[in-house]
């Protein structure tokens, strides 16, 4: 077995029944070279302090549950290798979200926003099953495919200063998903989504800091989606003057 060093993990703790505000707690943790922050948290929970709370599921950057701040940067704990990080690693719950307990944040606000943009295919009239499926060419799929890769990990919301300053902002990934359905040739629901997308809390709250796209572990590029929707909404606005249709 190879030699493993020991490092210190400083975890932000918040136990609502006893703490009035979060405090940091340090734990010594071994650091084999294949370990990620999530392994360290599991080690702490299994061998040192079973009261530590955090979310995780797949350990392979698919479920989107283990987003947290690692040394101040929003990351998936399952992708954050300890070997890249030095002797002390500071772990906090995702910024810009209320802390429910320890590393667990309250997601209610995001779920509500996600629901508001109607992230599903909307048809004006459904065609009968006998008429077969809705067809799509590879090019039509490619137009929006990158936005389907979102795992709702919320790293982008933590990176977004506009969301931090104004929690009413619908925010990066919900808007990216709105764009995903707007771009889908099978969808006819854009006009319904516009009510939220083109509102003050929608794309116009974004000032294109671009941090969301930089931290996204799935290369979704929500900033790109938002800028494209700004352009589309502006076109709508001017076409509206000309009496044109969307």
């Amino acid at each position: 077995m190879s030699e493993t060093s020991t490092i210190t993990i400083e975890v932000m703790r918040y136990r609502p029944e006893t703490d009035s505000e979060p405090v940091f707690q340090s734990y010594p943790v071994p650091c084999p070279k294949e370990w990620v922050v999530l392994d360290a948290l599991n080690y702490i929970k299994d061998t040192i302090d079973s009261s530590l709370s955090y979310r995780w599921s797949c350990h392979m950057a698919v479920c989107g549950s283990c987003g947290m701040m690692v040394n101040g940067e929003p990351m998936l704990a399952c992708k954050a290798f300890l070997r890249d990080m030095g002797d002390t690693v500071r772990v906090e719950p995702l910024l810009n979200f209320p802390i429910e307990r320890d590393l667990v944040v309250a997601m209610d606000d995001f779920i509500e926003k996600l629901t508001s943009i109607k992230p599903y295919i909307i048809r004006k009239t459904e065609k009968p099953v006998e008429e077969g499926t809705y067809l799509q060419t590879p090019a039509q799929l490619k137009r929006y495919k990158q936005y389907t890769l979102c795992i709702n990990c919320l790293l982008c919301y933590s990176a977004c200063p506009q969301y931090g300053l104004n929690p009413d902002f619908i925010g990066p990934s919900a808007l990216a998903l709105a764009h995903r359905y707007n771009l889908d040739n099978r969808d006819e629901g854009r006009a319904l989504r516009q009510e939220f997308v083109a509102s003050h809390e929608g794309v116009w709250e974004c000032s294109f800091v671009g941090a969301c796209s930089e931290v996204c572990p799935k290369h979704v590029d929500p900033a790109s989606a938002v800028q494209q929707m700004k352009i589309a909404s502006t076109k709508d606005y001017f076409l509206g003057f000309l009496g044109g249709n969307r």
Binding site: Y14, P16, D19, E21, P22, G72, L95, N96, P98, I99, E100, A106, A159, P161, G164, L165, V209, G210, A211, E214
Partner: peptide, 18 residues
């Protein structure tokens, strides 16, 4: 739930991207 405050005037000093 505990809400961490965010400085309205110096938030951009926190991150190189900002």
């Amino acid at each position: 739930p505990y809400i961490r405050p965010m400085s309205k005037t110096s938030w951009y000093l926190r991150d190189g991207r900002y």
